[in-house]
């Protein structure tokens, strides 16, 4: 009896599911593109969130006082008095009257130089607040009243609400788009699993009739598509990281634009992508396989 053709002691059984190179290349591409888009969305979301937080922080850290001078008092004098009055308030780190030239410079782009000469320029005091424990508009108003300064205090609350609302919208939009992308990836994997089971119905039937449990067969498809998605995830995440790095390089150290401040740390955002893609694919393939098998004896 010759056992010459027998496998050696290190023999390991071959994979039970045949590879389908042609279908897998297409699937790799689709899943990689979805991962790429999801990663860009994640990076964009993180960046937008950072921008919104920065704007909110800036708004919370400042207040503006518009001063109306008393009779016989110049605007500059009134502004100086107001700055002095609020400078001692707890939660204020700095208060300074805005010089008339600076105020005009702020308005000039909107109104033009000629018009400015005929307009009463508001007398403003810019107040920097302690970020940890900022003074409230009420605190500032009380201090101004005590000093006999007729003024209005703007703590930017209205703008702050708008910024926070916008930031919330961006966060939800990113979460929804990310979920849609993941759902699309899951649907693609489910479709591929269904197609794979149909294409290898012979394999599934033989396994089934030879006594394989549903979980055994589901594991085969689950592992196949999890591996595929993980590899696709690496490519998609890599491409997204490359694009992020390019934007960071083009934008310089300060970020691409003030509206989308990126950092090198944002590259880490894409790192869970292969794992997430594999998990989504594994779940989708498993559930699809089990559902299809449940229809058999």
């Amino acid at each position: 009896m010759s056992l010459s053709d027998a496998p050696g002691p290190r023999w390991r059984p071959a994979p039970l599911l045949p590879r389908d190179e042609e279908r897998e290349v297409s699937l790799h591409f689709v899943v990689a593109v979805l991962c790429f888009l999801a990663c860009l969305m994640a990076v964009g979301g993180v960046s937008a969130d950072r921008a919104a937080r920065g704007w909110a922080r800036d708004l919370r850290g400042e207040a503006t006082i518009q001063v109306r001078p008393r009779l016989g008092e110049t605007g500059d004098e009134a502004a100086a008095r107001a700055a002095e009055a609020v400078a001692g308030v707890r939660g204020v780190t700095e208060a300074a009257a805005l010089e008339k030239q600076k105020a005009e410079a702020l308005l000039e782009p909107w109104l033009g130089k000629a018009v400015l000469q005929d307009l009463p320029i508001p007398h403003l005091v810019t107040v920097r607040l302690d970020r940890a424990h900022p003074a409230t508009a009420t605190d500032l108003k009380k201090a101004l009243d005590r000093a006999g300064v007729d003024a209005d205090v703007d703590d930017h609350a209205r703008w702050l609400k708008d910024v926070e609302r916008s930031a919330g919208v961006v966060r939800w939009a990113v979460a929804i788009l990310f979920s849609l992308t993941a759902a699309a990836a899951a649907a693609v994997i489910a479709f591929a699993t269904r197609a794979g089971m149909a294409a290898r119905r012979d394999v599934v039937e033989v396994l089934h009739l030879t006594g394989a449990k549903d979980a055994f067969i589901a594991n085969l498809f689950q592992l196949r598509f999890a591996r595929l998605a993980a590899v696709s995830g690496v490519f998609g995440a890599g491409a997204a990281a490359a694009v992020t790095a390019l934007i960071e390089l083009v934008g310089g150290g300060q970020g691409f634009t003030p509206a989308l401040p990126l950092t090198w740390m944002d590259l880490l955002t894409v790192s869970p992508c292969p794992l997430v893609a594999a998990t989504v694919a594994a779940l989708s393939a498993r559930l699809t396989t089990l559902r299809l098998l449940r229809g058999t004896l």
Binding site: A6, P13, A14, P18, D202, V203
Partner: peptide, 12 residues
């Protein structure tokens, strides 16, 4: 199973 060698088919 066409994608498995004879040995693996028997091992199934």
């Amino acid at each position: 199973l066409d994608h498995l060698p004879a040995f693996d088919n028997v091992a199934l």
